[in-house]
Design a protein around this nucleic acid. Structure first.
Lengths: 142, 142
DNA sequence: GTATTATATTTGACTGGTCAATGAATAGTG
DNA sequence: CACTATTCATTGACCAGTCAAATATAATAC
């Protein structure tokens, strides 16, 4: 075995492999992409939110947000309006329709996640969540 | 708290956020994309390998493999040749140049991974690897 | 009050993944 | 032997992310 992966490298490999698998499966199962689901989910929790803080919450590039919202608006699930006090910022909120649809999506989502973690104890889920957070912190400003 | 994320859902969220961050950072640090690195890394371990088994090893779509290899071939790091006994399959191998370059990349890679997991004990890395594998198994045929 | 700087969003170019359709070669079956 | 299946690789269309540049508005500093 001239040049095998270290265990650490292997983790990275598994990581990549897993996320590549998750995205399309999630979408097939739930009928919505994981990113869109997150956007809607965040919007569900609040009344109205400006786009940049929404972006920070879901942790993807602003350009992607713009495009997602455009689609979601076209499909009648969200509305955007400018902040009258600061015309740079855009307020985003769910429509009633969006608010109903997200509930359906949530059911599918829960099913998917449960399946993925079905043999995990709550301690394991906690530990996993903790480790993911630490990894994130470790590379945040690299 | 009308509709908060469950812990399980949160894991999925963290997961997605983390991989989105990893890819560009990995590439900035190492000078090569994670997928290309993996391809080269797998090729390093063997003498020659056919494309489809390489694809299974790195766990990404065949179409993506075709395109990566095209690039890697153009940059002189790999060679392809048809299997004379079965003209459908393509054998891939590293060039001498590729074999040298991967060694450099490996150094950068190791640094990156070490940083990402710098506060993890070996037990934690093992546990993480184990959990990732289980998640993968849980959704493999969904 | 104008000039500069900073912030929010958008747009365009690029990369990398998916799926579905195609082409080419082999394998299997009557 | 011909006909159908399969298999491997490629291609095209699409989606989702990145970065960098452009735009528009607001805030700050002379």
């Amino acid at each position: 075995m001239p040049c095998s992966f270290s265990k650490q490298e292997q983790v990275l490999h598994q990581f990549k492999g897993l996320t590549n698998q998750i995205s399309p499966k999630f979408e097939r199962c739930t009928g919505i992409s994981a990113s869109r689901y997150e956007l809607l989910s965040q919007l569900y929790k609040v009344d109205e939110i400006n786009q940049s803080t929404l972006q920070k919450l879901v942790n993807i590039d602003g350009a992607a947000i713009t495009r997602h919202l455009k689609q979601l608006e076209a499909s009648g699930m969200v509305i955007k309006r400018r902040n009258p006090e600061d015309n740079r910022v855009i307020f985003v909120s769910l429509t009633d329709e969006g608010r109903e649809r997200i509930i359906e999506y949530r059911k599918e989502n829960t099913g998917f996640v449960k399946q993925m973690l079905h043999d995990f104890t709550t301690e394991e889920v906690d530990a996993l969540s903790d480790m993911l957070q630490r990894m994130q912190d470790n590379i945040v400003d690299y």
